[in-house]
């Protein structure tokens, strides 16, 4: 199928729940893991698709993701020992945030992508740090930028933004490009940070900073409407 045929149909209406699957064709999965997964976790695998020509995607039930990942990592026929990537996608418009696992099996040379849709009111999923140590920072980053909580993560704190960042989770679609505060307020807050904080033994790991978030009517919020997310 020519991918531009899809383009000719134009962007799907934003409320269309099936739009994420529209690009998928109905080709047979090229990766034997997909059918093995379906056979073993028939109730937890919600569907599968093939995108971008030859990439296998499995849509999994977030409640059982730990089990599935553990099996994919440990089972001798699968051995997905390399967690290539762990990230999330916000489609905006109140739709669920998807956590995406990109796996690679070094012995079998197979790639598999697993997507888990998390509704906005329950952004929590089991941590994969027990399976791949490398998931540690990737999960912290998803928490930082999307606000998805990973149950069982040993040290779930912000990683890129300051610990006491008060404006929210930047990669959400409802977050304006320039942030929620005015530039003057952002500069003031930045200079009032203490570069020496989290520098005392007990504070490195487990101190949870007090986040001062602005109320909707706060004058420090930027007056103008910065970004149009549908733009």
């Amino acid at each position: 199928m020519n991918p531009f045929d899809l383009v000719a149909q134009g962007p799907a209406p934003s409320g269309d729940a099936t739009r994420a699957e529209r690009g998928a064709n109905e080709a047979e999965p090229g990766n034997p893991t997909v059918s093995a997964l379906r056979a073993r976790f028939s109730d937890a695998v919600l569907g599968n698709s093939v995108t971008a020509g030859d990439q296998d995607v499995v849509h999994a039930d977030p409640a059982r993701i730990g089990e599935i990942l553990r099996w994919l990592h440990d089972s001798p026929a699968e051995q997905y020992d390399h967690l290539a990537d762990l990230t999330a996608v916000d489609y905006g418009g109140g739709r669920p945030i998807e956590v995406v696992y990109q796996l690679w099996s070094i012995p079998h040379r197979r790639a598999l992508r697993i997507r888990c849709a998390l509704p906005l009111h329950a952004l929590e999923i089991e941590s994969a740090t027990g399976i791949w140590t490398g998931a540690d920072w990737l999960e912290r980053e998803v928490f930082d930028l999307f606000g998805v909580r990973f149950a069982g993560h040993p040290n779930l704190r912000r990683i890129l933004m300051p610990d006491d960042y008060g404006e929210g989770h930047p990669l959400r679609k409802d977050f304006p490009l320039r942030g929620r505060f005015s530039r003057a307020e952002q500069t003031r807050r930045a200079l009032n940070q203490d570069p020496e904080s989290y520098y005392v033994p007990g504070e490195i790991g487990d101190r949870v900073p007090q986040v001062v978030a602005a109320e909707p009517g706060d004058p420090s919020l930027a007056e103008e409407d910065h970004g149009d997310e549908d733009d």
Binding site: P3, L6, P11, G23, A52, T87, Y91, R113
Partner: peptide
């Protein structure tokens, strides 16, 4: 315009496996 769908592509960068994950909506 890019088609609706997602794509993961990685190359061997100078520092390691450099992956790009792009999601389009048409």
């Amino acid at each position: 315009p890019a088609p609706d769908g997602d794509c993961w592509f990685s190359v061997e960068g100078s520092k390691g496996e450099l992956g790009m994950y792009v999601v389009g909506d048409g």
